[in-house]
Amino acid sequence: MSEWKAKRFWKEARVVEAEGGYSVELDGRGVKTPAKRKLVVPTRAMAQAIAEEWDAQEGEIDPGQMPVTRSANAAIDKVALQHAEVARMLADYADSDLLCYRAESPAELVTRQAEAWDPLLDWADREFGARLIPVSGVMHQPQSPKALEVMAKRAHGMDNFTLTAFHDLVGLSGSFVIGLAAMHDMRETRALWQLSRVDEQWQEELWGPDEEATAVAARKESEFLHAKRFLNLAQ
Results as ranks from 00 to 15, higher is better:
S144A: 12
H167F: 13
W10T: 09
W207N: 15
E223S: 11
G137H: 08
Q203C: 13
D27K: 00
Q141H: 11
W54F: 02
E204G: 11
M89Q: 14
I178H: 02
M151K: 02
R197S: 03
I76N: 00
K7P: 03
A6Q: 11
V177E: 00
F161R: 05
D77S: 06
E25L: 07
A114Q: 09
H184R: 10
A124P: 02
A87R: 07
L148S: 07
H226G: 07
L81E: 15
D185E: 12
G179F: 04
G208D: 00
R29Y: 13
F128P: 01
N73T: 03
A191W: 11
Q65N: 11
K11H: 11
R88G: 15
L148A: 02
E149C: 12
E52H: 09
I76D: 01
E212G: 07
Q48G: 10
D118Q: 12
F128H: 06
T162W: 12
S23P: 08
S2F: 14
T33I: 06
W207H: 15
H184V: 09
V86C: 04
E85D: 13
K5S: 09
Q48L: 05
H140D: 03
M183C: 09
E52F: 05
E60Q: 04
A47M: 03
M89N: 14
A155C: 15
G157Y: 05
D159M: 03
E3I: 13
M158Q: 06
V24C: 04
R197G: 02
K146G: 14
A45T: 04
D77E: 01
L231F: 03
E221V: 08
A155R: 12
E108C: 08
L121Q: 05
R8M: 02
T111I: 14
A35S: 09
L172K: 07
V177P: 03
A18Q: 09
D122N: 12
L98W: 09
E60N: 08
T69P: 01
G20F: 06
H156P: 12
V79Q: 00
D168V: 13
A47Y: 07
G208A: 00
K36D: 15
E85Y: 10
L225S: 08
T33V: 01
